[in-house]
Simulated scan of single mutants.
Amino acid sequence: MENLLLLHGALGAASTLEPLKHALAENYNVYTLDFAGHGGNALPDENYSIELFAQNVLDFIDQQQLEQVHIFGYSMGGYVGLYLAQQHPDHVKSVFTLATKFAWSEETAAKEVKMLNPDKIKEKVPQFAAVLDKRHTPQPWEQVMHKTAAMMQQLGKQPLLTPNALAQIQQPVQVSVGDLDNMVTLEETIAAYRSLPNARLLVLPATKHPLETIPVSRITQEITLFLANTPAAIPA
């Protein structure tokens, strides 16, 4: 069976992808991992970055002796997956992104970071704070959030997936977004699709950004359809 690696989003963890992993396990060798400082992993001394998380994936591929993988990446996980496809094309056979933000600038980063205020979250959405606490224990979720905010600010200053970078990715890619996503626009998703040489575009109707609001059966179906039409060999 083909190897399929599922990558979680910002503030997420491998646990958020367990339902999807279970649904796909019959047809693929499915793997998940927690990025550094997520899911209880020790907080790194260095800043969070796409480069750091990409290295986490490379280390995991090496440890599991996988060599080549298909990647499904939710939100930030999709950004990591595409960055890996560009920087290490020999390891990545295809990438499927869901709700991945491509249009990073200092203005968009500031908008995202404004929502990453632990004190306000504790006050206004304590249920979400409790979820984050459970997800990242024994690490303080507040630090996870602060490090995530700093990473977003850095992406705003220096985006990695520029149109030129996307144009270098030869692997099959499917970019998908919900039409009700309030964090990722249709316009930026379409722009990324047009920059990628071998891409497909999927717009999910009546779909918001949070992963847990999207039926697992729908994501499973779309991943299966995409991989069924993906060549066995990595493009030269």
Rank of each mutant, 00 (worst) to 15 (best):
H91P: 01
D90T: 05
K147L: 13
R218V: 12
F128Q: 12
I71A: 02
R194W: 01
D133W: 09
L204E: 01
E212T: 11
A206R: 15
V216E: 09
S15L: 04
G37Q: 04
I61C: 07
V113L: 04
K114N: 12
P235V: 07
E107P: 03
V144W: 06
T213E: 10
K134M: 10
E18K: 12
L202T: 12
F60T: 02
F128P: 05
T207L: 15
K124G: 00
Q87L: 04
N27K: 06
E26R: 10
E2T: 05
P215G: 10
A228F: 02
A228M: 01
Q63W: 01
K101F: 09
A110G: 06
Q87E: 15
S15N: 03
Q63L: 01
G77R: 10
G156D: 02
L24S: 09
L58W: 03
T224R: 11
G12Y: 15
E187K: 14
L180M: 09
A150F: 07
L225E: 08
I50P: 03
T108V: 08
A109S: 06
V177N: 11
E112C: 05
L5F: 07
H209K: 12
Q221E: 15
H146E: 11
T224W: 11
E107N: 04
G156M: 09
L98G: 00
A54I: 00
D45M: 10
L225Y: 15
A236S: 15
M145L: 01
D59C: 12
L43Q: 12
S94D: 07
M115K: 14
R200C: 10
A236G: 14
T162F: 09
P163D: 00
L58G: 07
Q64E: 15
Q87T: 08
I61L: 14
P215A: 06
F128H: 11
P159F: 10
N29H: 12
P215R: 13
P210T: 12
L204K: 02
A110D: 00
A130M: 04
A149I: 01
V175M: 13
V175I: 14
H91W: 03
A232Q: 11
L202M: 06
W141A: 00
T100K: 06
Y28D: 00
Q154R: 10
A42T: 05
E67N: 06
A199Q: 13
Y83M: 01
P205K: 11
A42V: 07
Q143F: 04
P126F: 05
A228Q: 09
I71E: 01
N164A: 13
A236W: 05
L24K: 09
T185W: 07
D179R: 01
F60K: 03
A129S: 11
V203Y: 13
L6Q: 00
Q171M: 07
A165S: 03
E26F: 08
L211V: 05
E51N: 14
Q221V: 00
L66H: 11
T220E: 12
Q64L: 09
G37F: 05
A14I: 00
T97M: 02
A42K: 12
V131D: 09
N117W: 03
A13L: 00
L186N: 14
H209V: 09
